[in-house]
Design a protein around this nucleic acid. Structure first.
Lengths: 335, 335
DNA sequence: GACGTCTCTGTTAACGCTAACAAAAATTGG
DNA sequence: CCAATTTTTGTTAGCGTTAACAGAGACGTC
């Protein structure tokens, strides 16, 4: 293995210049004669020279790497976000290092961040949708560029979020507009901010319409828990409209309703959240709320780059509005 | 920002030893007096010292980072694989840097690999399920530890794959065993090896039963294309059993069949591939084939570590067998 | 034509770590 | 208790890059 590639000095020797000139060419420094630049480039190509990021990171104090800390990158939301972040970062010349953690508790998060800091990442994006993550973040060194995504709105940390409240309100309002007398809610885990925000928005919409929100049914994002809630909902004749905290829950609810012979949307209307690619092919196609993950990724990366370049750690905040996607799972209530 | 943390020399000064002793403590070198070790550890803790990975990478020539090249990390398979790789790597003390690429053509892959090499990653895992990726890999420097996942079986590169052929054969056989006279197939994109392997296995099972395989219906992994194929299948009265190349295709097929009033499994049986978490909540719950992504991740990482440590680039090969998961979408054909 | 002012290039010194060797201290055996 | 080990610690020299400064030409300007 050990065969190390050529270094800058090898390129310099071949091009008949000093290694510093090579460095200048590489970094696009203006004061290099065109002819020299060409000779250096030729030497680089001939040797197949590849700059050593470690050496550069050592001397500049920062690598061109952005660390991402996330929990369950198999879920659609986090996975999309991660992919979008990676794309955006690549366009800016940054690599993305993933530090996924089993739990979002203080210890796990700190450990993941430490790992990233060891590699002298330029900045860190924490996808920290749960309460316990918040504390961990406050104790981190203040001097490292950091952005949280879907984190705790009450903490003084730069934050980019999907506007869960607005999304949930839109979903609920959509059902009310269709003529439903009230809307039931199957929620996500109570320690996720996403979940809390969606409950909030649902409640707001009902209260604004002068309605008393029924008790939300707790879930855990999975189709399995949606199914369990669906079995209960199917047995309650007064239920005509359900808003679930994500599409997987909705899928479970749909199946339970189907099994109990309750037709959607004829008997019960259902709205989800996330717009997973399959939502359009549920039975029936699911009306849902689509968060713009690309926008979130762009916003957080831009925030991070600003911090990296300026050196200031301003506590900014940015919110991305989701959009309602209307499909066939919503209809007027049966009289 | 710029406040750099303490370096090894700072720790050494505080502990009253040389920086080399600190290095020895950090790397678990045996010949350090217990008392000294303790003093050094205390100093490390007191200063909040964090070793500089870039410096270490520079001097050793390798960082504790593994590069992963993947295409669409939003798909369930790649996302699961990536997550599993990250977990496994973390246990071995490695970070994972993702280089996702839009297309798996020569240029994109090479570029992604180059980026990783610039950072002097210890090794690279390429999730390269398509033909065009193969060529790119052959041209890579031979001296970098590399493992491909779901890549081209005909190329002399270390490779870990899910046994697509066996999985597809099991799925098809399962349908034949239920009494079906033949099995139709909705395939994935023809340039994916996964896809080719699944077509192969399906064909093998039919031929072994003395049946002439009907023409496979081409798809692109999406529920949308499954839906289109499903619309055609629903209109063909002779069709009683369908094997789809993944679960999303199956979802689309299920919806099309439902719309055409063809009941599953009463009129038509369906089997998918992947066992996405939602498959158990499709209508009806989907019989499918579950690849063991954790096993794949473990195998590839272990292969990579062997290469890294031994320095040899042996062209190994490892196959992980998938398991059939029987659910309600399969039944005997209607007479 | 001498002088200052650009533009281009080279020299030197870090960055923080490990490897290789050298020296000092502790341990052993007779 | 001294020499021969063995264990522990220190010293020095890079790894490949950028930053800071210095030098050498080229070009006007008076």
């Amino acid at each position: 293995m050990a065969v190390h590639g050529p270094a800058m000095t090898d390129v310099a020797r071949l091009a008949g210049v000093s290694h510093q000139t090579v460095s200048r060419v590489l970094n696009g420094h203006p004061n290099v004669r065109e002819q020299t630049r060409l000779r250096v480039r030729a030497a680089i190509a001939e040797l197949g020279y590849r700059p050593n990021g470690a050496a550069r990171a050592l001397v500049t104090g920062r690598s061109q790497v952005i660390g991402v800390v996330a929990q369950n990158t198999t879920l659609y939301g986090p996975a999309s976000l991660l992919a979008a972040l990676e794309q955006t970062a690549a366009e800016e010349g940054f690599a993305v290092s993933v530090g996924s953690v089993r739990n979002l508790d203080h210890r796990s998060i700190s450990a993941a961040v430490e790992r990233h800091l060891s590699h002298r990442v330029a900045g860190i994006v924490v996808i920290a949708p749960v309460e316990s993550a918040g504390e961990a973040l406050e104790r981190l060194p203040k001097d490292v560029p950091l952005v949280t995504v879907d984190g705790d709105p009450s903490r003084p940390v730069p934050l980019v979020t999907v506007d869960q409240v607005a999304g949930a309100r839109a979903a609920t309002q959509h059902l009310l507009d269709a003529g439903h007398r009230t809307v039931w809610h199957v929620s996500g885990p109570s320690d996720w901010f996403d979940s809390v925000g969606r409950i909030d928005g649902w409640r707001q919409a009902l209260l604004a319409a002068g309605l008393e929100p029924p008790p939300p049914m707790p879930g855990d994002w999975s189709a399995a828990s949606g199914y369990r809630s669906g079995q209960m909902l199917a047995r309650m004749p007064e239920v005509t409209a359900v808003f679930t905290a994500n599409d997987h829950l909705a899928l479970g609810v749909l199946r339970a309703l189907h099994e109990f012979g309750r037709r959607v949307p004829h008997d019960i209307s259902v709205v989800g959240f996330d717009d997973v690619p399959e939502a359009a092919y549920f039975i029936p196609p699911l009306t849902t709320v689509r968060p713009d993950f690309d926008a979130v990724a762009r916003a957080s990366l831009q925030m991070l780059l600003t911090q990296i370049e300026s050196g200031t750690g301003g506590a900014l905040r940015q919110t991305v509005a989701p959009a309602l996607v209307a499909r066939e799972s919503v209809g007027p209530p049966r009289r």
